[in-house]
Computed example of a mutant assay.
Amino acid sequence: MFEPLTRKFTDWRLRRLAIRKLLRLDDRLLADIGTERDDIAQFVACGPCP
């Protein structure tokens, strides 16, 4: 019954953690992985754009 809610919460927490870690990187490293500082949230949500 609570599994979908728990899964959504866990996914949200993991996305927030990934965003925090990416925000700590410098712009050169972000460029190396295919994103910019302004696009980190989208990058975490959808992955790199082609």
Rank of each mutant, 00 (worst) to 15 (best):
M1F: 11
M1V: 06
E3R: 14
P4W: 04
P4Q: 11
L5Q: 10
L5Y: 06
L5F: 10
T6S: 11
T6H: 09
T6M: 10
T6F: 03
T6A: 14
R7N: 11
R7E: 14
R7Y: 08
R7T: 11
K8M: 12
K8R: 15
K8Y: 03
F9R: 14
F9M: 11
F9W: 07
T10N: 13
D11T: 06
D11H: 02
D11M: 03
D11P: 00
W12G: 08
W12S: 14
W12I: 07
W12R: 15
W12Y: 10
R13I: 09
R13K: 14
R13Y: 04
L14Y: 00
L14F: 05
L14Q: 15
R15K: 13
R15C: 05
R15F: 00
R16L: 11
R16K: 14
L17K: 11
L17P: 01
L17V: 02
A18T: 08
A18Y: 00
I19W: 01
I19H: 01
R20D: 10
R20E: 12
R20T: 04
K21L: 11
K21T: 09
L22Q: 03
L22I: 06
L22D: 03
L23A: 02
L23G: 08
L23S: 08
L23M: 12
L23F: 01
L23P: 00
R24H: 09
L25Q: 12
L25P: 01
D26R: 01
D26M: 01
D27M: 04
R28D: 12
L29F: 05
L29M: 13
L29Q: 15
L30A: 02
L30P: 03
L30E: 07
A31M: 06
A31T: 07
A31F: 01
A31Q: 13
I33Q: 12
G34R: 10
T35Q: 08
T35H: 05
T35Y: 06
E36L: 09
E36K: 15
E36D: 10
R37A: 10
R37V: 13
R37I: 03
R37Y: 06
R37M: 10
R37K: 13
D38E: 14
D38P: 01
D38C: 07
D39N: 14
D39C: 02
I40C: 09
I40G: 05
I40R: 02
A41Y: 02
A41K: 05
A41F: 00
A41N: 08
Q42V: 11
F43A: 04
F43R: 08
V44R: 03
A45F: 01
A45K: 13
C46L: 15
C46Y: 04
C46H: 12
G47P: 02
G47C: 02
G47H: 02
G47R: 06
G47S: 11
C49M: 09
C49F: 10
C49T: 12
C49Y: 07
C49H: 08
C49N: 08
P50I: 04
P50K: 15
